[in-house]
Design a protein around this nucleic acid. Structure first.
Length: 123
RNA sequence: GGGAAGUAUUAUCCUAUCGCUGAAAGAAAUCGCUUUGAUUUCUUUGAGAGGAAAGUCCGGACAACACAGAGCGGCAUACUGCCUAACAGACAGGCGAUAGUUUCUUUUUAGACUUUAUUUUGUCUGCUUUCGGAAUAAAAAGAGAUUAUUGACAGAUAGUGCAACAGAAAAUAACCGCCCGUAAUUUGUUUUGAAGUUUGAUUUUUUUUUAAUCUCUAAUCCAACUUCUUUUUUGCGGGUAAGGGUGGAAAAUCAGGGUAAGAGCCUGUAGGGAAACUUAGUGAUAAGUUUCUUGUGUAAACCUUAUGCGUUGAAAGUUCAAGUAUAUCAACAGCAAGUACUUGCUCGGUAUUGUUGAGGGGUAGAACGAUUGAACCAUUGUUGCAAAACAUGGUCUAGAUUAAUGAUAGGACACGACAGAAUCCGGCUUACAGAUACUUUCCUUUU
RNA sequence: GGUCCCAUAGCUCAACUGAAUAGAGUACUUGACUACGGAUCAAGCGGUUGAAGGUUUGAAUCCUUCUGGGAUCA
């Protein structure tokens, strides 16, 4: 039910390039979101980014990325159902662009906002 | 008892639910089907980040390329021994520096006692005895011993360079000064200095007498006279490195000789350096003897000497390889026109063209490299002062590749610092809350 | 993951071959010029030479270790 296996991660370099060149973007602080819709059978692949530009230490980057993954894992079921109904594939990249370390509850609230916004753009 | 510094060890834990990474076992489905096998899904089991994983400052393993051998250049290292795969690392030592403790010597000051009319002299260690008492302090310098910390600790006597300002001068020498010679100028026996004679005054001593006075001797001062000696300044030529306030640094200490003045110029001697020898030590080195020598510092200035280093790094490199294009080969088709070859020319043939198949290199991608190792542990044994080595026994302990350790709920206490593997090891450096043990030092309290 | 470079006044750069008041332009302040402003001229202000140690008589410069920023290798 709540899972986040390797298939749902975006690992192919060409797909990442096409996402960043062709995709659309919006901002939902502290996240900058890029997404690309295409015809398919309801697959979703997500890329989680926390760059060295905003978080200097490896420990804090791991801290942010783990909490973002966990929040996405627990809140993605509605978006998946909507995509299966519409019959579209989705590539998403979530970038953390704040220089502060946020706690889990703040990240989870904003992740669910982002997913709702994406849900409204499908179809 | 408290604070600070250093070294060593450790580096939050437990329960439940949901997830991530890879491993093992099992089941099902699909492909394949003689079996092995491949992919996907599910279940179970056990595992999953450090002392620095960091910085990338050194050293290696490993890989590719290069390589008969030698030299130049470049880089690194630099007291000795020893450990190590190797090292700019570790251990043990030598030498130096700093700090502390302690002992001795010298000087000065103060004090006590002693001696002397005063200046002064002596003592102020130990033991014993005696006794009314007192029988030492401070500062500076030097030497020795010991403890701790620390040192990019070869060479300045191979050569080149540099040493601002200040100072005469920063390592050759010149200037002031001192001395000699020479030329000119000025002065001239009234000046300067030396020797002698006479007179006067004062003081002292001796003798005589002692109430004063007088006489004599010696010294000093003033005056006069006699004899001997020229003086000042400047230029030129030479000698000299003793002296010259500076500076981080000023040219071998002291004594004597020597000279016109001087000088390591000469002699002895303190200190430094080199060589040889003796003794101790594996050696650095230490102690001593003899000879020679003595020109400050700087090599984290160039450099010299000795030793070592082939270059590039896992984005190294190895294997498989869809698709697209295709060297080459084979078969089939075409051979209309042009071109080239075959030929003196024409026809013919071959190639240039197309399709299919094979095939090599190789892109996307995948796998290996890549986790059993100079490994870790041991109330073990042997060798060694120690670092460490050997033997014996035991253990398997992350392996990702857009990159894994999290979230929620509850509980415990000391209330949680610095910080996240990316080929792997040995060191170094840097960051760090708390706890434990040890060492050093400071403060306070008690005895 | 490897390799290399840089840091100097508010800003842009010198001085990098050790030598004592670290310089130039611009910005800022004051004055002159002008009826006023601009331009121009003159003067002034402004520096822990990224931080900390070391070598040296002496360090922006030489050496070491950190901090921050940048470039490059498929």
């Amino acid at each position: 039910m709540f899972s986040f296996p390797k298939k749902e991660r975006l690992c192919n370099k060409k797909k990442i390039d096409s996402l960043f060149s062709k995709g659309k973007a919006f901002l939902c602080y502290p996240f900058s979101v890029k997404y690309l819709l295409s015809q398919g059978d309801g697959k979703i692949q997500i890329l989680i980014v926390c760059s060295k530009r905003y978080q200097k230490k490896a420990v804090s980057r791991n801290y942010i990325k783990r909490r973002m993954r966990e929040a996405y894992r627990l809140n993605n079921s509605q978006l998946k159902n909507r995509l299966t109904e519409a019959g579209q594939d989705l590539f998403v990249s979530l970038s953390y662009i704040s220089k502060d370390l946020s706690d889990y509850h703040f990240i989870e609230k904003n992740i669910s906002d982002v997913l709702k916004t994406l849900e409204s753009k499908v179809g």
